[in-house]
Structures are given as C-alpha cells and as structure tokens.
Simulated assay, not measured.
Amino acid sequence: MAFGAPSVPDLSNSAQGNAMKHARVVFLSACLALAVGSVRAGMPPVPGTPQHPPVAAAHAPDRASMQTMQIPSHGELMNALVYIAAGAGPHPVVILLHGFPGNERNLDLAQDMRRAGWDVLYFNYRGSWGTPGDFSFAHSIEDTGAAIAYLRQPEVARSLRLDPNRIVLIGHSMGGFMTVEAAAADPAIKAFATISAADMSGRMQAMLAMEKRSDAIAAMAHGLAEEGMAPLAGCTPDGLARELADHAMSWPFLDKVDALKNRNALILTADDGLTRENNAFAAALRNAGDTHVTTRHFATDHAYSDKRIELSHAVLAWLAGLPK
C-alpha cells in the first residue's frame, strides 16, 4: 500500500461544498469572538461598566493568604512577609529566623505551619538580602525584638488575624542564636525551637580559652567568610568575629539557661558539627528544672536537605503539643 497525500474531491460547485464553506465561516467567526473576548478579559474595565466580583470574594477575609510589609527597626525598614492561616483566628504565630547568611529560608516549613493553623512571619535582618542598613549580630538581635514588637501592635494583630500572646520563635543555625537571645530577653515568649542552632559566641568563648584573641578572631573570621558574605552589607568577616569576641561572656547559650528554664523548648540537631553544644544546652535546661525540653537528631546535613518532610513533622508535632 502506498502512503501519500489523500485525494481531495472537488466540492466547489456542489451542495456539500457550500455546506462546508458555511461551516468554515461559522467556525472562524467563533474563533474570532473567542479571541476578542480573551483580549477584552485582560483589558481594564470600561468606566461605568458593572463588574462582577469572583464568587470566592465573599469568603476572602478568612482565606489563607500572604501579606508583605516592611518592619521598622532602629531607623531602617526590614523586608518581611507573613503567611496567614485560613480562618477568622486569632491564630498563634511563629517568627521564623534565618541563619548566616540565610541561603536556607525554611519557607517549606512556613507553608506547612500555615496549613496547621499558624501564621508565620519571615523577615530579613538589617543589611541582609536587600534590607537596608548594616548587618551585625547585635543588630540581628535587635531586629528580632523589633519583629516581636511589630506583631504585638493591635492593628497589626487584627490585620494578620494573629494572637500576640502566642508568639513562638523558631530559628535555624544563626537564627537559633537569635532565637535564644530574643527568648531569653522576653519572658512573654513561652516557647522556642532551634534547628541546628549555632552558638557562635559560645564557640568564640571556647576558642578564647585555648588561644590568643587575635588567633581566635582570625579563625572565626575565616569560618564566616567560608559561609558566604555576598548577601550581607556593611560588615566584614573580621568585624563580625571581633563582635563575637566582645560578647563572648554575654551571648553564649549556657548563660541564658536561667532565663529560659521555664519555657517549652524544641532542640533539633544534625550531622553538622553542632550537636555537642546543642545537647549541652538541652542538658543544662533540664538540669535547671525545665521539664518541657524536646530533642531529636537527624542524620542529615546542616540544611536538612534530605530530611525536609521529617523535619516538618517534628516541628508540627511539637507545635501541636504546646499549651493553648
């Protein structure tokens, strides 16, 4: 059998041909109407033309959503966003604190927490990821306090449908450092969680006990540079290392145990070299009388790259068990 172009009968003068021509005209007219309608759908409405709102508009106030904002902190405005849970609320709220420099933002956890009924605030510290100002550890501690104060404003709490009396801090890596510092300074924070928290000043304290200050600063500066400084403004590795040395007696986690011994705590660790100091922190809390310390270890890297679902389950289970 030969394969070629099929023969086309001459229908130009037949009734069947006229019917086909008419069908083509109808088809082309319908396509033109559809195209014009599509263009008009994307155009701004003609003034005076009544507009019909989407069917879901009546339920919009209680739907899950997201708001972006800039949070004031010591003369600058921090770039921020809030994942708002569905329902009228008020919802408990998590402040999710990123690490150094903040490549892993943990926004998958934010989405999961929102589905579980929590609002979640994420922000960038001054001098990080486009937020104006100079980055430093002291500034980041201040910025975390500013974020807490922002959520407690009555008009903000109403807008975001959140309960300002149920704020939980969750920090990853350096964000764990910010979590410990901010929670210790604020007794109204009843629960906090750390994910491979970096006790950076505690580590500097240990280094200063074993070597000269200049050598400890140089070693810490090298480690900070290796982490990546590109997303950070107004700082240098050496300057940040000196800042840690200057606060080696006031910022370490073990110095915050007395202030935190009555809080609910979740301390998560990984195979990233930070487990020993985090376990020491958890043990110190328990020895001080804290009966609400939960710990768990994951066989994964610092970013929990292949344990994201397990990480989410651990965080959600802990949040679900917190007092209402």
Rank of each mutant, 00 (worst) to 15 (best):
E226R: 13
H52R: 15
T236L: 05
W318F: 10
N13M: 02
S201Q: 04
T291F: 00
K261H: 15
E243A: 08
A270W: 01
Y125I: 03
A317G: 13
M200H: 09
N287Y: 01
E227Y: 11
G133Y: 00
A60D: 11
A320K: 13
L260V: 08
G37V: 00
G37C: 12
A284S: 12
F281P: 03
H247N: 14
K190D: 12
A184F: 05
G75F: 01
T236R: 03
A35E: 08
A85V: 12
A219Y: 09
M207C: 01
H172F: 08
K256V: 06
T300A: 15
G321T: 03
V25A: 13
S73G: 08
A149Q: 09
P132I: 07
P164Q: 04
A60H: 13
E277T: 12
Q153G: 11
S196Y: 07
L224S: 02
C235F: 08
M66P: 05
K261T: 15
F298M: 00
F100C: 05
Q70S: 13
G17I: 02
H59C: 03
I167S: 03
T131H: 06
P45L: 10
R114H: 05
A191Y: 04
L322D: 07
L232R: 03
R114V: 02
A80M: 07
A188R: 14
L311P: 07
R63L: 15
P154I: 12
A314M: 06
R161K: 15
N165F: 00
I95H: 01
L266W: 08
P53G: 00
I170S: 04
G223F: 10
M200T: 11
D271E: 12
P154C: 03
R263T: 13
S196V: 09
A56T: 13
F177E: 14
A41M: 13
A60Q: 13
N106A: 10
A221D: 03
L32P: 07
P72F: 00
H247P: 10
R296I: 06
Y125E: 05
A233W: 05
F135D: 02
I84M: 13
A248S: 15
I84L: 15
P154M: 02
A23G: 14
A146D: 09
R263P: 08
T131I: 07
V94Y: 01
I148F: 13
